[in-house]
Design a protein around this nucleic acid. Structure first.
Length: 100
DNA sequence: GTGCTGACAAACG
DNA sequence: CCGTTTGCCAGCA
């Protein structure tokens, strides 16, 4: 199984309305320490991919894009659309963090 | 092969 | 809470 494929599986398994950190995704994919690789993989996603990449944030619960950037806005809107509260680019991990 | 970069993370101060 | 430092791994020039 390809590493990228493992990451896709984990990201695709994140329930709607929940979020997960890059490090967590990497761990659940059996790729401990590959947090940065997860970011690299999501960045390379084809535009026609239906992967819920917007449910992945950094360990601080913040969107890993510069505020005001295109990616930032799209991710924030996608999360808000699922009922995830995003304030100042930060997600309330207490309520929306995904854990098995 | 070497060195820098990046949608990261954890530990410090 | 914020900035810095160190550790990580893959991709690219």
């Amino acid at each position: 199984m390809d590493k990228a494929a493992m990451i896709y599986q984990v990201v695709a398994a994140i329930p709607k309305g929940k979020v997960c950190s890059y490090g967590e995704v990497a761990k659940r994919a059996g790729l401990s320490g590959y947090a940065r690789y997860v970011g690299h993989t999501l960045k390379n996603l084809p535009s026609d991919s239906r992967l819920p990449w917007h449910r992945v944030v950094n360990s601080q619960g913040k969107i890993s894009f510069a505020q005001g950037s295109d990616g930032f806005t799209r991710q924030q809107q996608a999360l808000l659309g699922e009922g995830v509260l995003v304030i100042d680019g930060k997600v309330n991990m207490r309520r929306f963090a995904w854990h098995i």
